[in-house]
Design a protein around this nucleic acid. Structure first.
Lengths: 140, 140
DNA sequence: CTTGAACCTCTAGTTGCTAGAGATCCTACA
DNA sequence: TGTAGGATCTCTAGCAACTAGAGGTTCAAG
């Protein structure tokens, strides 16, 4: 009973994003008004809220697709959902760990900057010479 | 004096990525051999190492572009480099903070999972009902 | 009945690469 | 000297997850 604009306002998901979710099959195509405009019901609202919350938690769309299809089958064991959530937890923990290393090195870089000229700037120097930095290999 | 393959091996940057950096103007187009293959000198090596290290620290390519042009002007004050590095530090700190919130909620979700059926799965339930979660708004 | 906001579809752009096709080059070995 | 193979070349298209814009229609308020 709500148009795409109201749905957007009610969920915090932008209008083009809602259309995008429909396009990739994450959200069912809704009914249309006489003038061909999308008309959503309460179920669509729930589903989009679900998607939005999962996105906030960093789940990739493919994982959300699985979670949604799980939530449509209430009788199934929830082990699959558990696995997906754990996978996401591990990924988040890994990202935190890597970012902490970056944080350390950036802090070191910034704190060593003597605010002189580029020629003796530690920021530039550290970037130019990997040997000056504390660790070996870490992704961004 | 080195081909693109050697340069790649020496820096850890993949061959197509090197060509990509050249294409977007981050890396100067090198000399070519008689047979039209790229030939790099030591300066290119330094520059690519610089880029790689900055990428590892999560600097976006546009920031790296600025940092590179700064490092080409050794007499300039290094305040600009300092600002860029601080900006990056703030961004990393923000990402860590957000990820920690996610981590908390994911842990809560996973630990509450009773390993029963989907219908009483906390993972699915929390995702479906934003009110069950601890916080308001946070990006992914 | 008109105006203007909201909606429609479609394409293309974002970031930082990665993968493939199909052609050419370079080097080492017989 | 010939040739087999790996390395290189260009070009296009794809990934995630949207975002922005063009150009056109519909709807609701005054």
């Amino acid at each position: 009973m709500l148009g795409i604009g109201k749905l957007s306002a009610a969920t915090g998901v932008k209008v083009p994003t809602i259309r995008y979710y429909e396009q990739i099959g994450l959200l069912q195509a809704p009914a249309r008004s006489v003038g061909n405009q999308r008309v959503y019901d309460g179920r669509a609202l729930d589903r989009l809220r679900f998607i939005r919350h999962a996105r906030e938690l960093g789940f990739p769309l493919e994982a959300i697709r699985e979670l949604l299809s799980l939530s449509d089958q209430p009788g199934m064991p929830c082990a699959a959902a558990d696995i997906i959530a754990k996978r996401q937890l591990v990924s988040v923990q890994g990202r935190i760990a890597r970012l902490r290393l970056l944080q350390d090195e950036l802090e070191r870089m910034v704190s060593q900057c003597a605010h002189g000229t580029v020629s003796d700037c530690k920021v530039i120097e550290v970037l130019g010479d990997h040997g000056l930095c504390l660790h070996g290999d870490h992704g961004a």
